[in-house]
């Protein structure tokens, strides 16, 4: 064979995240200043830190801006229907328990249309890591009111200000029985990564809320129009209080944002563990 220079000469890895990214899908659809990217970066770093086999990682998402993430990461990705990421993920995890199943979706997806699935998965203690990227708004559809929009803030369907009472999502998770509950923001990338890594080593329903800027559809209508305005709000208002009582971490306009690792329960059986014990009992009795 005559000497030829291969066209597919091996490329140097250019970015530490190349392993985790479907680079051919770049550029992504997210806006400048969005917090989804840093959140996924923290998640992928945490997977590396814990040393989880990439082929065993499953990423399930619902609908909305963050729903698109499952198609950008280089793992088995499932972009499902609006609100149904959690039950879809439960199906995967129960049917193949050796997989590391993650749900990463938005606040509207997980707490409005998917709210019922969220609380019941907490209650059953399904073995999932659920990360809610909370940007306080429906970003993809153009800035409508979310179940997390703080009172008095503006949305395209709340043009005179929000009159509703938003969810305090860590408290919802805690009250519903999640075994791990934390809140960080997308600018606290290192602490978020550590928190995700801790959650990845646990079993059961683990919940991390990540406050995330949406400059285009939240910031613009709420006097935070520049790409880094919301990040600056997070920086100035954040107070880390690990172990805080989740009933006291409600997000309110002009109040401190309480962040931290709030809840860690170790004794609660997962649904799958309960099922396996039941199987033993049933078979033993025969």
């Amino acid at each position: 064979m005559s000497k030829q220079i291969s066209k597919e000469e091996k490329l140097e890895e250019l970015h530490p995240m190349d392993k985790w990214l479907r680079s051919e899908r770049m550029p992504h659809i997210w806006c400048p200043g969005c917090g989804i990217g840093p959140t996924l970066y923290a998640w992928a770093r945490a997977l590396d830190r814990v040393g989880i086999d990439k082929d065993k990682v499953v990423y399930v998402s619902g609908i909305g801006c963050s729903g698109r993430g499952s198609g950008y990461l280089n793992v088995d990705g499932f972009h499902t229907t609006h609100g149904r990421a959690i039950p879809f993920a439960i199906g995967i995890k129960l049917a193949k328990p050796e997989l590391c199943v993650n749900v990463i979706s938005g606040d509207g997806d997980l707490f409005s249309i998917g709210g019922n699935h969220f609380i019941h998965a907490c209650r059953r203690n399904d073995d999932l890591l659920v990360i809610c990227i909370n940007n306080f708004i429906y970003g993809m559809t153009g800035g409508q009111l979310a179940p997390t929009t703080p009172r008095g803030q503006y949305a395209t369907t709340a043009p005179y200000g929000n009159i509703e009472h938003p969810f305090n999502t860590p408290h919802v998770a805690d009250a519903s029985g999640a075994v791990y509950v934390a809140r960080w923001t997308s600018i606290h990338v290192r602490r978020l990564e550590k928190s995700i890594a801790e959650a990845l080593t646990m079993k059961g329903f683990r919940y991390i809320e990540v406050l995330s800027p949406c400059p285009v559809n939240y910031g613009r209508r709420n006097k935070l129009p520049e790409p880094d305005d919301i990040a600056e709000w997070f920086r100035q208002s954040s107070v880390v209080r690990n172990g805080a009582d989740t009933s006291e971490v409600q997000i309110e306009k002009d109040k401190p944002l309480i962040l931290g690792n709030f809840v860690k329960r170790v004794e609660k059986l997962t649904y799958y563990e309960g099922l396996k014990k039941l199987e033993e009992r049933v078979r033993g009795a025969r």
Partner: peptide
Amino acid sequence: FPQIGGIFVQFEDELASMAAILGASWTGV
């Protein structure tokens, strides 16, 4: 199912049930 090693879940509603059977099928089950 407990006799033969199948997974049974009574979900919170039919929306979840239908989503879960899709997820489970994606593992080959």
